[in-house]
């Protein structure tokens, strides 16, 4: 469908197709990611949303070569950066991708920095390695980057160790480190989960400012729909190792097509007094990925489940150019349509 169109008009920066990852564990093989597609355009933000353990972090970490293999294993898929295959290798045309083309920040800044190296040294490292700068040059650049990340007294702070920083400051330093080589993609893996709410907003603002300045794309992994609404251009909703709905922010928020997305939204607080509603949790828990269900993974928790959902996995139904949903409700034989459910929910 629109894929060809997309390629012609606005070439995708990164395209991931049919990515599947497994882990050998004590209890058996966990199929953590079961065929995931997503893509991100230059300068845009893609948010991947889902609850803990749905495979959103594993998807990007496997792409970055950050999962331990073994026990991890990429069983299928491809990831193309500007059309060139990068999955399973960390270099493109002899140059390291990580840190230079794609960089990453993580959930817990407290543990994500080396406790025995100064902040400045850690920021300088990628510059020395990828840009070939001398230590002195790189350190000077690190101070500039800290200033860009709005850390006061950057020159002094650069000589300090992680334990002398607060959580928010550390995440700023992480961001400074990630953008040091002007990557085209920044992957932020739950960047604000471990931080206070006020700090969260500052960090998100910083990321947006830097995106405007450098034009990088952001892949934002989160379980916070508020963060998604604030940051994302496109949203992929992930459940049990699969993407169940994908679309623009407006598509996903205002024209939610998958019952899981509906459930997430019903569980999310709203600060608009006119649309206050009682928060409704999604009953039950995600399926056991040691033995993924034959049908739809959400079937057991879905209030609209039909017999077909238990037996067969649904295909992706396109509801717009970018908007698809992976649910049997969109099948022509289905007696109800999600749109109806959606309006019923909101009435």
């Amino acid at each position: 469908m629109s894929e060809a169109l997309n390629l012609a008009n606005n070439p995708m920066l990164l395209e991931v197709e049919n990515l599947a990852v497994e882990f050998d564990t004590y209890g058996g093989v966990v199929k953590a990611v079961r065929g995931v597609d997503f893509s991100v355009e230059e300068g845009k933000t893609l948010a991947i949303v889902g609850e803990s353990g749905c495979g959103k972090s594993v998807s990007v970490q496997s792409m970055m070569g950050l999962i331990h293999m073994p026990p991890g294993r990429i069983t299928s898929g491809s990831a193309r950066l500007r059309g060139e295959e990068v999955l399973g290798r960390n270099e493109l045309n002899g140059k390291e991708i990580r840190g230079a083309e794609i960089s990453m920040i993580f959930q817990d800044p407290m543990t994500s920095l080396n406790p025995t190296m100064t902040i400045g040294d850690q920021i300088a490292e990628p510059l020395q390695v990828h840009r070939g700068l001398s230590y002195r040059q790189a350190f000077g650049e690190a101070i500039n980057l800290l200033e860009m990340s709005k850390i006061p007294e950057a020159a002094k702070r650069a000589k300090q160790f992680p334990f002398e920083f607060s959580g928010g400051m550390l995440q700023r330093a992480m961001i400074a480190m990630a953008i040091s080589c002007k990557p085209s993609i920044l992957i932020a893996d739950e960047p604000t989960t471990a931080l206070d709410v006020t700090i969260q907003a500052q960090i998100l603002d910083l990321m947006q400012d830097l995106q405007k300045e450098t034009g990088m794309a952001i892949i934002l992994i989160t379980h916070d729909l508020g963060v998604v609404a604030r940051m994302a251009d496109e949203v992929a909703v992930m459940y049990a190792g699969k993407i169940v709905e994908h679309g623009t922010v407006d598509d996903v928020f205002y024209r939610s097509a998958h019952p899981y997305t509906l459930g997430l939204r019903a569980a999310m607080p709203n600060n608009d007094p006119a649309r206050q509603h009682e928060l409704k949790p999604i009953e039950g828990s995600p399926p056991d990925l040691f033995a993924p269900p034959k049908g739809c993974g959400y079937c057991a928790r879905c209030p609209f489940a039909m017999e077909v959902c238990d037996k067969h996995h649904p295909q992706d139904y396109f509801l717009g150019d970018h908007h698809f949903s992976c649910c049997w409700l969109h099948h022509s034989d289905s007696p109800t349509k999600p749109e109806e459910l959606y309006f019923k929910e909101n009435s």
Binding site: E283, C299, A300, A305, E307, V308, D310, P335
Partner: peptide, 17 residues
């Protein structure tokens, strides 16, 4: 092998959860 009849609401057993 998908029939219209498959699109009946799923009858859950109580222990599904």
């Amino acid at each position: 092998d998908i029939h219209v009849s498959d699109f009946r609401p799923l009858q859950r057993r109580s222990d599904v959860h």
